Simulated scan of single mutants.
Amino acid sequence: MTPQPRLIGKPIIRILCQKTNTLVGYLYQWNNGDVQPAWLNEAMAEVRYEPMADAA
């Protein structure tokens, strides 16, 4: 974590369930370079990541 405050975050990656291929969250990148998952429900261990550009 960096000493700069997190002011602006944008979703950069979709988090999908490995088994069902359903959307379970997004990975956000903050203005200070930090990344953080935002889960739609509960956090999951068996996931795969899909860049936002590939999702369109």
Rank of each mutant, 00 (worst) to 15 (best):
L23V: 02
T2Q: 09
R6F: 01
Q4E: 14
V35S: 09
A53I: 15
A45P: 03
E42F: 06
K10T: 14
N41E: 15
L23N: 02
A45T: 14
P11Q: 02
W30R: 06
N32G: 00
K19S: 13
M1Q: 13
P11V: 05
E50S: 05
T20R: 08
T22E: 15
V35K: 15
L16T: 04
V47R: 04
P51V: 08
G9F: 00
G25A: 01
Q18W: 04
A43R: 12
Y28V: 07
N21Y: 09
M44L: 15
P51G: 07
G9Y: 05
D54F: 11
W39Q: 11
L40R: 10
P11W: 01
W30C: 07
P37T: 04
Q18E: 14
E50N: 01
E46M: 10
T22S: 07
W30E: 05
R48P: 00
P5M: 10
I8Q: 09
A43D: 02
R48S: 10
L7Q: 14
I12R: 05
L23F: 03
N32K: 06
T2K: 14
N41K: 04
V24A: 06
K19V: 12
G33H: 03
G33V: 04
Q36I: 06
K19W: 04
Y49T: 08
Y26S: 00
L23Y: 06
Q18N: 10
R48C: 09
Q36P: 02
A55F: 15
T2I: 05
Y49I: 07
Y49R: 11
R14W: 12
A55C: 13
G25R: 01
N32H: 06
I12N: 02
I13P: 00
Q4S: 12
W39K: 10
M52F: 12
P5R: 10
M1W: 08
Y26T: 02
G33K: 04
W39Y: 06
D54P: 02
A38P: 00
A43P: 14
P3T: 11
I15V: 14
M52A: 11
V35W: 05
G9K: 03
D34Q: 12
K19E: 14
A56G: 07
P3A: 07
W39C: 10
N31C: 11
L7Y: 06
R48I: 10
C17Y: 03
T20V: 02
R48K: 15
G33M: 05
D34V: 08
K10G: 06
I13G: 01
D54R: 09
Q4N: 07
M52W: 05
A43H: 03
V47E: 08
Y26N: 00
N32A: 06
N41F: 09
E50R: 06
Y26P: 01
G9C: 07
A43K: 13
Q18I: 05
P3K: 07
E46D: 15
N21P: 00
K10W: 11
N32P: 06
N21A: 12
G25W: 01
P11E: 12
P3S: 11
A43F: 01
M1V: 08
G9N: 01
W39G: 04
M52T: 13
L16R: 14
L27R: 14
E46A: 15
M44F: 02
P11I: 01
A56L: 13
R48H: 12
E50V: 08
T20K: 08
K19F: 09
N32Y: 00
P51H: 08
